[in-house]
Design a protein around this nucleic acid. Structure first.
Lengths: 201, 201
DNA sequence: ACCTGAACACCGTTCAAGT
DNA sequence: ACCTGAACACCGTTCAAGT
């Protein structure tokens, strides 16, 4: 909160701004604002426009960072799971839910009004696609072993993603009340069971 | 757009404001603003505060109206469907998706950052609960006939709701691209098939 | 090249004042 | 009772100017 007077001349102001935005979101405090953001790194508020064309570009960078972290978490969860496809998918989607609850404000930026509607941020799109890819590859693998029923992997993945994303958003927004992340994830596993059962052959 | 000069003295300004907000959302134009809203009904912008404590209260009224219309649409769809529970549920949720696509900006208010987080708007909560109730009652009915597997109806309903809501938001935000409402709904039916199959016994 | 300062066109909200 | 007008504390964004 104390404005840092360090000069970002020759420093990485862009990186510092994204980090500060993540800190502000994690702090759960007031709204993320270009002016507050700039002042939190000790810089004039117009300096932000040297590194981001507008607020949407800043939010795109924040969202992209979030999707990268989310994809990594899904990958770790998949690696920890057994080798049954249904287990892998449950773990992957459980990690998605856990991420949303652990970082609700960050997740709200990722899931909120679509940032990339006019295709300005291809790297954001790629980061989003990487999270979905975790599901499609696990599904394709399960089909290859005969564990899952046939059908376009993308269709099955989008169904599972919709369920996971819808639940994660609802829980992060506290529309569905849960006592803890653990409870949220285990409850999710129960809600997802019918869909995973329907995907098994 | 032409400011109406009619006096709302003794008229129903509150009603007029909500209607104007719905029109502005439907028009898909610029952001919904207290000032633009007031001027669209030909009234000073501070007059809005005579009828709504703040912007959240206005949005709560808008969202409540949306959930009522949504619940009605779900009810009509359920009535038109056959009497198999899986058919009723598919039709109900399909209506949910169709509503989101038909009224994307209105739906964004309903699905966006939670308006009722501090429990200020019990009528909004009731309207939301009415939509979920369509699912729980259809599920309980299907369990009574033995068509659906046992389990708490609320759990099954929340799973189906998460899937439906997640897909509807994604489609309304154009994260999932579809050519038309018809295509969106029939694609949804395909994505939902595994979950409905998993709910059948 | 990178940052500052002043300015513009907006916001939501409050409050004294009018009818 | 209901609405207006002026004001306050903010926004995002632009642009000339400084170093």
């Amino acid at each position: 909160m104390s404005p840092r007077r360090a000069s970002y001349h020759h420093g990485d102001l862009r990186r510092a701004l994204v980090d500060a935005a993540l800190r502000m979101l994690a702090a759960g405090g007031p709204e993320l604002t270009m002016r507050k953001l700039a002042s939190s790194v000790g810089v004039d508020h117009t300096a932000v426009y040297r590194h981001f064309a507008d607020k949407r570009a800043l939010l795109a960078a924040v969202a992209e960072e979030g999707y990268r972290a989310l994809a990594a978490a899904m990958g770790r969860a998949a690696a920890r799971a057994g080798d049954e496809a249904v287990e892998v998918l449950g773990a992957c989607c459980g990690a998605y839910v856990a991420f949303g609850l652990a970082h609700p404000a960050h997740f709200a930026v990722m899931a909120g009004p679509r940032i990339n509607e006019d295709e300005r941020f291809p790297e954001l799109e790629a980061a989003i696609a990487a999270t979905l890819a975790h599901l499609t590859t696990a599904i394709a693998a399960g089909q290859a072993t005969g564990e899952l029923r046939t059908g376009k992997p993308l269709d099955l993945a989008l169904g599972l993603w919709s369920l996971t994303h819808g639940y994660a958003v609802a829980v992060a927004q506290r529309r569905i009340a849960v006592r803890s992340t653990r409870v949220a994830v285990s409850y999710f596993r129960r809600l997802a069971a019918p869909m995973l059962a329907g995907m098994a052959r």
